[in-house]
């Protein structure tokens, strides 16, 4: 059988092109981030990093992630369970609705939240009367991040749970297991790889979200700036090194995330071959 690119020369050419492009478009920018951040030496890097505003941004970003990830984890599992284990009118509609945050531009999502919860928004008057501030404060940032990241876990789980079917759970229930026991001992072990992967993706997006957050955050330095916003603001201030220092943190988080994902995939592959 002859495949396209079977000739050694063509093959070498194709592989070479792929490597060059990867280096050019993916690796080089990554290297550039760290190079720029460390341009003026490690001392300046540390100094930029321990800047109060940057530390506040790091803290806020972590807070957003710490709230978003567990909430969407529970929500995603619940949604996937509902959609794959029960048949009810509107099931397909629900499956389509899950994708809205993917389909809509994050900026639009931010604007919608502003419209809902902002001072002049539909709920704004009531919130104002009760002295609850959501927009231009951390609750607003958390809310839009929840919105933007909510499909990741469910989207990872639904195809898997559909493929696995509910036979094992049915077997467990005929053996007298309670709902929680079934979930803990049968469902969860079967979906844990996909679940972790969904969590990693959710976390990556929660930490890195810019568009939606920038609309609802109001860019108050040291208060409502998350790391991506901080990067942008420092850059606007012509503080290139500072901007890249924060950017390097985000890049580092991304690398850690990718490493975690690779490790998971490697473990899953090893498990497959073991059985």
């Amino acid at each position: 059988m002859i495949r396209i690119g079977d000739a050694p020369r063509v093959r070498r050419l194709l592989i070479g092109a792929a490597l060059v492009l990867t280096a050019l478009f993916l690796l080089l920018p990554l290297v550039a981030i760290f190079a720029q951040a460390l341009m003026s030496g490690i001392d300046v890097y540390w100094q930029n990093l321990s800047d109060d505003y940057t530390l506040a941004a790091i803290g806020l970003t972590l807070l957003v992630a710490v709230i978003t990830v567990p909430v969407n984890l529970v929500f995603g599992v619940f949604l996937a369970w509902l959609v794959t284990r029960f048949d009810f009118p509107g099931r397909r509609l629900l499956q389509t609705l899950i994708d809205i945050p993917f389909a809509v531009s994050p900026v639009v999502a931010g604007l919608v939240y502003l419209l809902l919860y902002g001072r002049n928004g539909w709920l704004g008057g009531w919130l104002d009367a009760h002295d609850i501030q959501i927009m231009f404060a951390w609750p607003g940032i958390v809310l839009v991040t929840l919105f933007v990241t909510c499909p990741f876990v469910a989207r990872e789980l639904i195809p898997l749970m559909q493929a696995q079917g509910s036979r094992e759970e049915e077997a467990a229930v005929t053996l007298g297991a309670s709902g929680w026991t079934i979930f803990r001992r049968v469902t969860l072990p079967n979906i844990r790889h996909a679940l972790l992967y969904g969590v990693i993706l959710t976390n990556a997006r929660a930490v890195g979200e810019f568009g939606a957050v920038s609309v609802v955050a109001g860019a108050i330095r040291g208060e409502t700036n998350t790391l991506p916003l901080q990067v942008e603001q420092l850059y606007q201030d012509y503080n290139t090194v500072g901007a890249f220092t924060s950017a390097s943190l985000l890049a580092l988080l991304a690398l850690l995330t990718l490493a975690a994902k690779a490790a998971l995939e490697w473990r899953a592959a090893r498990r497959e071959t073991a059985t």
């Binding site: 036979r167 077997a171 001992r185 049968v186």
Partner: peptide, 16 residues
């Protein structure tokens, strides 16, 4: 189901 005291064997085994 869980209180019916039945044993059920599935076509495709449904082992955990």
């Amino acid at each position: 189901v869980r209180d019916r005291r039945i044993g059920f064997v599935f076509q495709h085994y449904a082992l955990f």
